[in-house]
Amino acid sequence: MRLLPLILMALAAGPAQPQGFAGMGADAPGFALPERGHVLEFPRDHGAHPDFRIEWWYLTANLEGPDGTPMGAQWTLFRFGLAPGARDGWDSPQGWMAHAGVTTPDAHFAAERFARDGIGQAGVTADPFAAWLDDWHMTSVAGPGADALDALHLAARGMEFAFDLRAEADGPLVLHGDAGFSVKSEGGQASHYYSQPFYRITGEVTLPDGPIAVTGLGWLDREWSSQPLEGAASGWDWFAMHFDDGEKLMIARVRSEADTGGWFSAATWIDAEGATQTFGPDAPRFTPLETARVAGRDVPVRWRVELPPRGLDVEVSAVNPQAWMDTAFAYWEGPVRITGTHPGVGYLEMTGY
């Protein structure tokens, strides 16, 4: 438990600020800042960036069992820096936190782990690619000459669940914003952000009643930054959508304090071959349609999401409204169904409620 104060210090915004779990709610002097025009390079940028304050490796999967029952799985590794740089041994200023979850229509399971840097308990290597915390891992199994993220083996377990999955990409990496420079606010705060949204998933999910063979679609997000969100930010709503025609959409908003109706939003439309079109804050529209009482708070679990320049007008509904990640910095995360002009499936993350 001595690690928890380290993580809490790294999340200097503190648990009272809803965006704090992602480490972007407080100033971070001395750390590197994202730069427009910086060229992302792979496999280098699949690895850790310890000169930046916060980053994550974040895979979500929309799955089905043999009988068609929908479910979701999440595997996430966060790195937090108290100071720039990494060192071997116990004096490394980096800390790690991992989240894993499984969601079915009737149940939601979540687990969380913490680790120190510098002693081998957790970390990320770029080449060969591997991310791990204890026995939770996301490891490249790509063949020679392929991008390291083209094929992954990932596994995690909690008290009542486990999963062992294989992810095979059938499309390219996608850069968000301006060649991976993703603006988060009117003040210009930004991150470096790319995704691999083209995974086909196979494997096994184990629930209290036993193992279930699963197939489905996966989406990996990679993001790092040192910049805080604007002071008025109260949280965010992030949607990753897989449409039945093979196209994809990342669409998100950062909400203003007290959710007065103000927000900063962005979207990336991804065609079936991986070509992208980026949209700024004037294009996306978000309308909560229904809330559910979740962990003592009202959380939107059914949405209307519109992107008029692409003719998108969809309704997004939670597979399980109670998909609450009851972790040290709690949030809602779960699979969704999409109906309307572009039917499909996806994942939704909401913080600050």
Rank of each mutant, 00 (worst) to 15 (best):
residue 6 L to M: 11
residue 13 A to V: 00
residue 19 Q to L: 13
residue 24 M to C: 02
residue 37 G to P: 05
residue 40 L to Y: 11
residue 41 E to T: 15
residue 42 F to R: 12
residue 47 G to Q: 05
residue 49 H to K: 14
residue 51 D to N: 12
residue 55 E to S: 08
residue 57 W to L: 05
residue 62 N to P: 01
residue 68 G to R: 02
residue 70 P to K: 09
residue 78 F to I: 12
residue 80 F to W: 11
residue 87 R to Q: 13
residue 87 R to T: 12
residue 94 Q to P: 00
residue 95 G to E: 00
residue 96 W to M: 04
residue 98 A to L: 09
residue 103 T to K: 06
residue 107 A to Q: 10
residue 113 R to A: 15
residue 117 D to T: 05
residue 118 G to V: 10
residue 121 Q to C: 05
residue 124 V to W: 07
residue 130 A to S: 14
residue 134 D to S: 14
residue 136 W to L: 10
residue 139 T to W: 00
residue 140 S to M: 02
residue 149 L to C: 11
residue 152 L to G: 08
residue 152 L to W: 07
residue 164 D to R: 12
residue 164 D to L: 03
residue 170 D to N: 15
residue 171 G to S: 10
residue 173 L to D: 04
residue 173 L to R: 15
residue 174 V to P: 08
residue 185 S to T: 09
residue 187 G to S: 11
residue 190 A to F: 03
residue 191 S to P: 04
residue 199 Y to T: 10
residue 203 G to D: 08
residue 203 G to E: 06
residue 206 T to S: 13
residue 208 P to E: 11
residue 208 P to H: 09
residue 214 V to C: 07
residue 216 G to S: 05
residue 218 G to I: 03
residue 243 F to T: 08
residue 244 D to L: 12
residue 246 G to P: 02
residue 251 I to R: 06
residue 252 A to T: 10
residue 258 A to R: 14
residue 261 G to W: 03
residue 263 W to D: 09
residue 267 A to S: 13
residue 267 A to V: 01
residue 267 A to R: 04
residue 274 G to Q: 09
residue 275 A to T: 12
residue 275 A to M: 06
residue 283 A to V: 08
residue 284 P to Q: 09
residue 292 A to G: 10
residue 293 R to A: 13
residue 298 D to V: 00
residue 301 V to D: 01
residue 305 V to N: 09
residue 306 E to N: 11
residue 309 P to I: 03
residue 319 V to E: 11
residue 325 M to D: 09
residue 325 M to T: 05
residue 325 M to R: 12
residue 327 T to N: 13
residue 327 T to I: 15
residue 337 R to M: 08
residue 340 G to H: 06
residue 347 Y to P: 00
residue 349 E to L: 03
